[in-house]
Simulated scan of single mutants.
Amino acid sequence: MNIRVMEWFTGRPEDISAEKEKPIFSAINKTKRREESLYLSETGLEGDEQGDQKNHGGAEKAVCVYPWEHYAYWSRTLEEPLPHGSFGENLTVQSGVEEDVMVGDVFRWGKAVVEISQPREPCYKIAKRHGIKKLPLYVRETGYSGYYLRVRQAGIVEKNQPLRLEARTTSLSVAEVNRITYHSEDPGEIEEALECAALSEEWKSSLHKKLNKLKNKH
């Protein structure tokens, strides 16, 4: 399996709040990089920063990936053309939709090695960027979330080099994690997802909370 990098982006925090609002610092408005190669460290592409380091970035969310295939749907649904990078991703990719990639998939990308750690959880900053309050809800409903990569080996990466699948250790797709997290009421499914060693601890924490709520219901 090869995932093609169509475009890549990095950003620096800026205030995206409206006038008279409390400041909201975010790097969701990323800039397309024209370079053919960049250094990928354990915390992300060179030049990329996060405005909220508690909820974004870090080792488990070093690179945000979004599938190109979803853009046609969003352009139709939102009735406006969306350029690549509109979801604040670092990589707009082809042939890597959520159904086809598994949590824990390991890819060789140039001199680096990366691994899928979790889906991308849509937050209010996506809504803020596009002026659509329900956009995070729409992302959860469709499962068109994108996902994050952790960096197992840092190194120079090149835009024209695909992410080449080197190892698949689980059968838990990113789409399945989204479905279980947002739509399942089956404790067994949640427990099965929690057994996935490659799933990030932050995502597991959310699943534990959901599981406890379900068990307290019964």
Rank of each mutant, 00 (worst) to 15 (best):
S145P: 08
E141C: 01
P136H: 09
E141S: 07
R150A: 12
E158G: 14
Y138N: 06
L135W: 05
R140Y: 12
Y148D: 07
G143E: 13
I156M: 09
G146H: 13
I156D: 01
V151Q: 14
V151G: 12
I132V: 09
G146K: 11
L135M: 03
L137A: 08
Y138K: 08
A154S: 15
L137N: 11
V151I: 11
K159A: 12
K134E: 15
L137I: 14
I132H: 00
I156R: 15
T142Y: 07
R140G: 00
K133C: 02
G131E: 06
I132S: 00
R150C: 09
R150F: 11
V151M: 05
E158D: 03
I156H: 04
V139K: 00
G146V: 06
E158T: 14
R140C: 10
R152A: 07
R152T: 10
Y147A: 08
Y144N: 08
K134F: 05
L149K: 03
S145K: 13
Y138L: 15
K133Q: 13
T142A: 07
G131K: 00
K133N: 08
K133I: 08
E141K: 13
I156T: 09
K159H: 06
R140F: 04
K133T: 07
K134P: 02
V139S: 02
Y144Q: 04
Y138E: 09
Y148E: 08
L137H: 11
Y138W: 14
E141M: 11
K134A: 11
L137F: 05
L135Y: 06
V157D: 00
L137D: 12
V151R: 10
Q153Y: 03
L149E: 07
L149V: 08
H130W: 15
V157Y: 00
L135K: 01
H130N: 07
S145D: 04
E141A: 12
G155D: 09
Y147W: 10
E158A: 13
A154R: 14
G155K: 11
I132K: 14
L149G: 09
V157G: 07
V157K: 02
K134N: 14
R150E: 11
E141Q: 15
Y138I: 00
I132T: 01
Q153R: 15
K159Y: 02
L135D: 05
R150I: 12
V157E: 00
K134V: 08
V139H: 00
A154E: 15
V157S: 07
V139A: 06
I132Y: 06
V139F: 01
Q153D: 11
K133R: 14
R150P: 13
L137S: 09
I156E: 10
Y144A: 12
G143I: 09
R152N: 15
V139R: 03
A154Q: 09
E158S: 14
A154L: 02
K159E: 04
G131D: 10
Y144E: 01
Y147R: 14
A154G: 04
E158V: 01
G146C: 12
Y138H: 04
V151A: 03
R152P: 05
Y138F: 09
K159F: 03
S145M: 05
